[in-house]
Amino acid sequence: MNAENSTPTAELVQRLSATPRGARLARHLTAQQLHDWGFPHDSDLNDTARHVVAELAANAVTHGRVPGRDFELRLLLRLPEDTLRIEVSDARGDRQLRFAAADVDGDGGRGLILVTLLATTWGVTQRTVGKTVWAELALKEPKSTSCAGSRRPCPRTPAPVD
């Protein structure tokens, strides 16, 4: 089933000011909404979703900001597909996304690398005004314990202590 055409089981849509305070509120709203949907604050999904929202919202207020225009956070819980879709829309469609900084030691440009590592899939959709950057997270962990071939990093096992 195409994720863009599926019907969400639950949805949150909120417009927020395109400021650092708005980005912080987006992260807190995400944590609370997921808690209300049954994914506690200390769950892996809640933590991952907060990181993804933090990156996408920071990009929206830093690079997608148009004076006087808000950004929009949209969370879609799709239970038949076991997916959480996160969408952050801003009013700036004329700026290309930077996937990585040219200077590896620079202060920015790596947020979308983090999104790539945390999300099952992500992308950009153009709108009449602006763009929507979206990411999807699996609600359940993969059944296989092997992380070979996965886009996610393998968890590290602590070294034994003698």
Rank of each mutant, 00 (worst) to 15 (best):
A91Y: 09
D103P: 09
V88Q: 01
R69K: 15
G108V: 11
F99N: 07
R78S: 13
P80S: 10
D105P: 02
L97H: 01
F71A: 01
L97V: 11
E72F: 02
L79T: 15
L75S: 11
F99R: 11
D107E: 13
D70V: 00
D103K: 08
R98M: 12
R95N: 07
L97T: 01
L84K: 00
S89F: 09
D103C: 07
L73T: 05
A102Q: 10
R95P: 04
G68M: 07
R92Q: 15
D90C: 02
A100C: 07
R69Y: 13
E72S: 13
L77C: 06
G93N: 09
D103M: 06
A101H: 12
D94V: 01
D82C: 03
E81G: 07
L76F: 09
G68N: 10
D82K: 02
G108W: 12
F71L: 05
D105F: 15
I86G: 08
E72T: 14
P80F: 12
D107K: 11
R78Y: 03
P67R: 06
V104A: 14
A102P: 05
D70L: 05
E81W: 01
E87W: 00
G68R: 07
I86F: 08
P67W: 04
A101R: 10
G108K: 11
D90G: 00
P67A: 06
P67E: 14
E87V: 00
P80N: 11
L79P: 04
G106D: 07
L84M: 02
D70C: 05
L73R: 06
D94E: 14
D94C: 02
G109M: 08
R92W: 12
E87C: 13
G106R: 05
T83Q: 14
G93P: 13
R92T: 05
L97I: 14
L77I: 04
